[in-house]
């Protein structure tokens, strides 16, 4: 889902840089309130962890393996604002060091994977789990948070691709950037994510949430929030 350079027009990537910068500013401010002076090594740790989650290939029923994007589980474990900074840092490192995602598209990639995905995952989880602290409802909420979070991010990327022929075409009607219209970009991204990638994301989210719930529930941010609110 990493958008490379060349696929987005300046009228798309410049505003998305602006949106991402605004979110980074708010995120750093919010984290400072919660984590105090330790925020620098804490966020670096969160970013490294976010990167490493992608390094685990998970066997999926059917004989294949896949890895998660991890933004959803980071939001559930560390909070959505921490996830904004952590995943953005990972995307910046990936763009600069590994050529994964374009330099001009950093704002767009951060918007999809570091803003849309963590928040959608976090809200989905909180809405779906209600007051349950475990059991099937909790597990379903964890799966759906990963599943819907990644699908939302993919749809956001598809929307960015799909509007390019509408906003940037040559005099002969030739698309200058991403060539696929919305009628192709959205179904293509939606189908592959709904049927495969989002399932992997959901499975990884469930796996980790089950483990943390059983062994270290106090480390889960979304659970901590509930306990604090109850007190």
């Amino acid at each position: 889902m990493h958008i490379p350079d060349g696929y987005l027009s300046p009228q798309t990537y410049i505003p998305l840089y602006g949106v991402s910068i605004a979110f980074w500013g708010i995120a750093l401010k919010n984290i400072k309130k919660e984590v105090s002076a330790k925020q620098i090594p804490y966020l670096a740790m969160a970013a490294a962890f976010s990167f490493l989650v992608q390094m685990f290939n998970v066997p999926i029923p059917g004989g294949t393996t896949g890895h998660a994007v991890g933004a959803g589980i980071i939001a559930l474990l560390l909070g959505p604002w921490t996830a904004v900074v952590a995943v953005s840092v990972v995307l910046i490192i990936q763009a600069f060091v590994f050529g994964d995602g374009g330099i001009t598209a950093i704002g767009a990639n951060c918007f999809n994977m570091a803003i849309v995905m963590p928040f959608v995952a976090f809200w989905t989880f909180n809405i779906m789990k209600g007051s349950s602290q475990g059991g099937p409802r909790f597990i379903t909420a964890a799966f759906l948070s990963g599943y819907i979070g990644l699908t939302a991010a993919a749809l956001s990327a598809a929307l960015m691709f799909g509007i390019q022929p509408l906003i940037a075409s040559g005099p002969d009607g030739r698309p200058l950037y991403a060539p696929y219209p919305l009628s192709i970009a959205i179904p293509a991204m939606a189908i592959e994510h709904l049927l495969l990638f989002s399932i992997i994301e959901g499975v990884v989210t469930v796996m980790l949430m089950r483990y943390f719930l059983k062994h270290e529930p106090t480390l889960i941010y979304s659970m901590r929030k509930v306990s604090c609110e109850k007190v």
Partner: peptide, 16 residues
């Protein structure tokens, strides 16, 4: 601060 976070996490990534 943001640049320092990136630099530090870059080092963490390779250690971990």
């Amino acid at each position: 601060t943001f640049l320092f976070i990136i630099t530090l996490s870059y080092k963490y990534i390779f250690i971990f």
